[in-house]
Structure formats: C-alpha cells, structure tokens
Write a protein that binds this DNA or RNA. Structure first.
Lengths: 202, 202
DNA sequence: TCCACAACAGGTCGATTGTCCTGTTTTCAA
DNA sequence: TTGAAAACAGGACAATCGACCTGTTGTGGA
C-alpha cells in the first residue's frame, strides 16, 4: 500500500492556486489560460481545484481582489504615500518598472490593465472589482496632488484630470511596451510626464 | 429539387467574413470569438470559411492588416494631415471619439490596442503587424509635430516622445473608459493634453 | 466544348475546454 | 470516541473549439 500523505492545508493550497492563476492571467491572459494548465502549475488535483474554485469566474475574481489590487497598492499607492511629492513618486515608479522590465527581458504589461481589457466586457462583477481598483488608484493620485497644492508645492493644476492623464499615460505606455516588447514608450512617457510636472511645480 | 443558387462572389464573401471578424474581435475579443459564431454572423458555410481562411490566425492577420490599420488611418493619421496643426487635430479626434461613444452608449475600446493586448504575446506575426501600425501612428504624429516646428508654430518640444505620450494617453484613457464604460477618462485626458500643448504652442 | 480549378455546401473529426462526480482522508466539535 | 463536514484524489462528463473532409457548383481559359 502506497502511503498518500495529504497536506490538508487549505490556505496554502488556495494561495498556490491564486498565485499560479495571477501569474498566468497577467502574462498569458485569462481566456488563454486553461484550468488544466493551472492545476499543473499549482500542483493541485482536480478535486482540490473544484473545492476551492468551483468555477473559473471565482478564481478570476479572487485574482483581481487579492493580487491585482495588491499589485497596484504596492507599485503605486504606497510610493505615492512615502515620497516627498507626486512628481518624485511618479518618476521613481517609472524608473522602477523600466528597470524591472529590462532585467527579466520581457514586458507582460500592467496587471490591472491586462485583466480589465480582457474580461471587463464579459463579466459585470469583475468589471466592478476592476473599476474599484482603478478608482482607488485615481483617488490616491488625485489626493496626492491635492496635498501638494495644500503644501504650496504646486499651483494651477486640476488634480482629478491630471491623475487620470498620468494613469492613462502609464497604462497606455505599458500596452505599447507589451505590444512590441520594447521599454521605449515607458521611457518617453516618463520624460514627458516629468517635464510636464516640472513646469507646474515651482 | 430545390434550386440552390450560389452567389459565387469570392471578394464579397471574404469581405463579409473580415467585417464580421473585425467587429467581433474588437468588441468581444479574438479568443472569445469562435469560428462558428463568425460563420453565423457572416452568413457563410464552413466550406466557404475554410476556403478563405483555413486557420483562425490568418483571419486575425487579415483583420489587423485590412481593418485595424484602416481604422487608425482614418481616425488619426488622416485628421493629422488635414488639420492646421497637431493640437487642433488631437482635440478634434478626442471630441469625435467621445461623441461617438456617447451616441451608441458603449465603449468597445481602441481596436489596435484591443488586438495588441490580447494576441501580441501569442503570435509573432501578429505582433509585427500590430507593431507596424503603432509605428506608423507614432511616425505620423511625430512628423506632424516636426512640421509645426518647421512652420514656427511651436518650439522646445521633443516630437518623438511627445507623440508617444499622446498615443499612450489616448490608448490608456480608452482602456479605462472601456473598463468601466465611462467616457470621463477620455474627457480628462483631452483637457490635460490640450492644456499641455497650448502651453507649448505660442 | 471541355476541363481544370476556384468557390462553396454541409458535415465530421479529435482535442481541449470548464464543470462536476464519486470516493477517501483529515479535521474539529460535541 | 464518534460523527459530520471540510479538504482533497482522480477521473468522467458534455459542450465547444478549430481544423478538415468529401462532394457539388460555378467560372474561365484552351
């Protein structure tokens, strides 16, 4: 008799599945990733997968709520909080991303944007979850601009629309970089945004 | 005996297929659209479909080269040519798009961006075709800025990176608008880009 | 006129998709 | 200690995917 040792660690199994799904969804895409592929990557059986995520939708929602939101939080919202002002944070974030992309050699795109582009039209609940992350992102950036205004670091800007422009430029540049595997769009946008903000900040 | 009248108009059949595929690919997505769905939409049989497009890849390539390239040409490159200067063209293009989206009530996103985000990582040939369209777009915009410099309408700008920023902002705003079905990101970016360009143009 | 081939009809094919099933093992509360 | 439910194993399931098949009809050149 072969002794089949079961791990029976539901939290760890769930984490393995969501980790594998997050990595696969943002690199290969939600639709392009099959459940069997995820089972293999996460080293879980069909039974375990079905227990934690009976349908693919729920796995997608878990990835969005747990991982994508966290990624935006760490790469954008947190740096915005700790840096001295918005332009410094934005410039640092771009540099960070460009360096990381140069290091591993391939551009997989912005996780939030990737998911949003693919699934938002198909699933209302995912659309809401993704929209909430976009809103939080814009809100954090807009509030940072407002704080800079309050601290007399800048004048004559519209925090809301400027925040939208920065996010749009970042997302768009990421999309272009992903499309032809080239970091140049990000470098260009970093330079232009820096120049734009420098002209506003004294 | 039922008389089955055959149309036998290969060009029209091909056009029907590519039209249906273009519309489906940019609204529902390339992977999410099945061949059977396209057969129904284009009202063609499996035989006709197999004759014109034996594999789905070729249909995707045809859509990119015939329709997506044409869409970018008409919505961006042509207006850039006929308007008095770049800022005017950009502002008009944004207004046009926003109006169109408000009219039909839903945002399906930028055709080029939609296709690029989904398939560029999976297929090298499609990536090249999409990259060429992006390059032509950037080139047209950059050349327009250069011409404005030559005509002494503007000074102290970097045409290349500014062109990248405009395209990235547009693509990103479209993605955000698509994600939560709201034209506001486009309106914000239009305003910010207009302000940015106005400060550069005398 | 005839024939080779393009154009099309209509159905079939294996592979893969996401989902779900029946058992077995572990956990935890009573 | 016992029983119920959670956690997991391993495979089966129908549906759908893209691809491709054989046959028929139209077309244009020799």
């Amino acid at each position: 008799m072969i002794e089949h040792k079961r791990t029976n660690d539901p939290q760890a199994v769930r984490r393995r599945i969501v980790d594998a799904a997050y990595q696969a969804f943002v690199t290969r895409g939600y639709l392009a990733t099959g459940m069997s592929e995820l089972r293999a990557k996460a080293s879980v059986t069909g039974g375990a997968m079905a227990h934690h995520f009976p349908v693919k939708r729920e796995l997608g929602l878990a990835v969005i709520r747990d991982r994508v939101a966290e990624a935006v939080q760490q790469t954008w919202i947190e740096p915005l909080r700790v840096c001295s002002d918005a332009p410094t944070a934005i410039d640092r974030i771009f540099t960070e991303i460009i360096d990381e992309l140069s290091r591993n050699g391939s551009v997989s795109g912005c996780p939030l944007n990737n998911m949003a582009m693919e699934v938002s039209r198909h699933d209302e609940e995912m659309q809401e979850a993704l929209g909430a992350i976009f809103a939080a992102w814009e809100d954090a950036l807009s509030r940072r601009f407002q704080e800079d205004i309050r601290l007399k670091r800048v004048d004559g800007i519209r925090p809301d629309s400027l925040a939208t422009l920065v996010i749009a430029a970042y997302s768009g540049a990421m999309a272009m970089a992903k499309a032809n595997q080239d970091t140049r769009p990000l470098v260009h946008c970093q330079a232009e945004l820096a120049a734009l903000l420098a002209s506003k900040y004294a």
